[in-house]
């Protein structure tokens, strides 16, 4: 699957990338929301977007709303360092909202396999 990863922390982003590539996906990394929007305009479409929540300039949620407004309906997975429950409840359109800790290593590939 072709996946776009967005994270303002390059190390965390690369970790996500490592997890997904290990699961056999084809990943591209964007360091912020704006860069992500540029990549989304690429010719080859992405099948999934995995984004960090808390980022400067454009937060993960804002990015989510922005791409929906642009009419893109690719699945969107939000990663957060805090309790994901309230976010899930508050934002119905998300494919998933996952806690960013070392459970990600197993949860993220499993989730994507189900999509």
């Amino acid at each position: 699957m072709r996946i776009l990863i967005v994270d303002d922390d390059p190390l965390a982003g690369e970790m996500t990338q490592a997890i997904l590539e290990e699961a056999g996906h084809d990943c591209l990394f964007a360091a912020n929301g704006l860069e992500a929007l540029e990549h989304l305009a690429d010719e080859t479409p992405f099948e999934l977007l995995v984004s960090d929540l808390h980022m400067p300039l454009l937060s993960g949620l804002e990015l989510f709303r922005e791409i929906r407004e642009q009419g893109l309906d690719l699945p969107f997975v939000l990663l957060t360092g805090d309790d994901p429950e309230p976010l899930r409840a508050q934002t119905p359109g998300l494919a998933a909202c996952l806690m960013k800790d070392d459970s990600l290593e197993t949860d993220l590939p499993r989730l994507i396999a189900q999509l």
Binding site: D8, D9, L11, A12, M15, T16, D52, H54, P56, G81, K100, D101, D102, L104
Partner: peptide, 15 residues
């Protein structure tokens, strides 16, 4: 806030 948040986040990601 962002620094502490990031430290917390990636600290958790890396166990």
């Amino acid at each position: 806030h962002l620094i502490f948040h990031t430290i917390k986040g990636s600290g958790a990601s890396f166990g």
